[in-house]
Write a protein that binds this DNA or RNA. Structure first.
Lengths: 130, 130
DNA sequence: ATTTGACCTGGAGCGCGCTCCAGGTACCAG
DNA sequence: CTGGTACCTGGAGCGCGCTCCAGGTCAAAT
């Protein structure tokens, strides 16, 4: 069982110190241990949980929904099916998101193509070289 | 040369009426024609421009940067290289974004996999059926 | 003994991107 | 003439997700 200081947890999770405190405050992160001076000591489990939160945030899940998931997780094994459904739903949205980005990216690249023709030979990607 | 009412422009662009007015106010959309009563009449060119804005927004470009692009576009042909650079930069970010989403999606799917084993036979995707 | 630095708390503030509202105008239908 | 509807304006307000701040505690280093 390793323990991590707030600074280490921040670095490993990619959340800022303030965000870690905020997440604990709103209930996304519970039961973080404290040392005698009241300072947080994050466990490996905490970090694993943070990695999941990071994943959900990165993929655009709103905090309210992460909270829902968190509460289900805390409620016990019998909520597993619901948690699974929640993640599957989210996964579908992520797939759509990727799809939209890919399609819009084609539009961008088509536009870039127009500029490539317009700006002719293309003088390397260095605007200062001239 | 077709013209479109605000409602039509909204529907075709996917931006709300308020957003269209807002975009015009901040300068993302300029030179929209008006009828005798002062109502906007969007042209095909306006809609083409809106489609580009929609594309940039969907891919996460901040408004400040769209504004920059807009100003370059208005400044004339000689800014083409800079506009191209801007889009290429954005395209790279979009690629990264897609990449991140794809990687995080794997994490989600791995997690779903765990729930699949946990919740056993999987009773079709219908939480009400039981 | 004091300084430094990492951490604590509660609560205010912020940046973004809209979204809503009040109050008004112009046109069309009955 | 009366509604009704679609639009107009300027400006206030909002939801989200942090982020910052003031004022304080503790422990190790000098």
């Amino acid at each position: 069982m390793n323990f991590y200081s707030p600074a280490q947890a921040s670095q490993r999770s990619g959340f800022s110190l303030d965000t870690l405190r905020y997440y604990e405050k709103i209930g996304l992160l519970a039961g973080v241990a404290r040392d005698s001076a009241g300072r947080r000591r994050f466990s490996d489990d905490d970090l694993t949980w943070l990695r999941l939160l990071r994943c959900l945030r990165d993929t655009g899940m709103p905090i309210a929904e992460m909270l829902r998931y968190t509460e289900l997780a805390r409620a016990g094994e019998h909520t597993a099916a619901e948690r699974r459904a929640l993640l599957e739903e989210h996964d579908r949205r992520v797939a759509e998101q990727i799809d939209l980005l890919s399609r819009q990216r084609e539009h961008i690249q088509w536009k870039i193509g127009i500029y490539r023709e317009l700006t002719a030979p293309a003088p390397a990607a260095d605007p200062v070289s001239a």
